[in-house]
């Protein structure tokens, strides 16, 4: 029963929504608009289970109910809990400029996330040195266009001869070759999503219900 009701709802609503999308009447269009207005509002409630899952997951590590407990995991969980509740309580009190929440946001959260992201530079430099080998025709081609886009995107072309032509060629390539490849990927993803949605509507794909359904 627990599984049949969601499956039934998904089937009925999925079919109705598909039909409504392809039937062009004023009431069907109204119904689609109503559904599209409701869907985002419902999705907002996902924050409730998401918070619960995060706290429960880190709570297990903190209370050593984890399958493979370690001190590092416990420390990480402790830091997560302290950070979460400090931000929550201070934010509920006030998030105005000059408040504790605002101070922590500007002086801890922003610098920490910026630092984490900037570390990528070092990884990318190291990975490029180790992994980028011009050993075959297609990797050579990749290298040529990577250099072209890199040089123009960083302004290096302003210091090299015929830099303006490099720039124009880079823009042309981004608008043609790049777009063709991106669209091919996008079409592939769209067809895949369509297939997955059909499987979900007809109850073939049930992993969305969780628990290895």
């Amino acid at each position: 029963m627990q599984r049949n009701i969601p499956l039934f709802l998904v089937f009925i609503l999925g079919i109705i929504y598909v039909l409504l999308t392809f039937i062009e009447t004023s009431w069907s269009e109204g119904a689609v608009r109503l559904a599209s207005s409701w869907a985002p509002l419902l999705s907002m409630w996902a924050i409730v289970p998401a918070t619960y899952v995060t706290l429960a997951s880190y709570g297990r590590r903190l209370t050593k109910r984890d399958r493979n407990p370690t001190t590092q995991k416990a420390i990480l969980a402790g830091v997560t809990y302290v950070a979460f509740f400090t931000m929550l309580i201070s934010g509920l009190k006030s998030n105005a400029e000059g408040s504790l929440f605002d101070w922590m946001f500007r002086n801890i959260q922003i610098p920490v996330t910026s630092t984490m992201f900037s570390l990528l530079t070092f990884y990318i430099a190291s990975a490029a040195y180790r992994a980028f080998r011009v050993s075959r025709a297609h990797t050579s081609l990749l290298m040529v266009f990577a250099v072209l886009v890199m040089v123009t995107n960083t302004g290096m072309h302003t210091y090299i001869p015929f830099g303006q032509y490099w720039n124009e060629f880079s823009t042309w390539f981004l608008m043609t070759g790049n777009v063709a490849a991106k669209r091919a990927i996008l079409i592939g993803v769209a067809v895949g999503m369509l297939a997955t949605n059909i499987r979900i509507i007809f109850g073939i794909e049930r992993s969305w219900m969780g628990g290895g359904a």
């Binding site: 530079t121 990318i124 430099a125 490029a128 040195y129 180790r130 980028f132 080998r133 011009v134 290298m143 250099v147 890199m150 040089v151 960083t154 302004g155 290096m156």
Partner: peptide, 20 residues
């Protein structure tokens, strides 16, 4: 920020060249 960006990318290009 552009000079840093350009220099780091120039470094990456040189590193790729050395690697190859």
């Amino acid at each position: 920020g552009m000079p840093s960006l350009a220099l780091v990318h120039a470094c990456i290009l040189i590193l790729v060249l050395i690697g190859n």
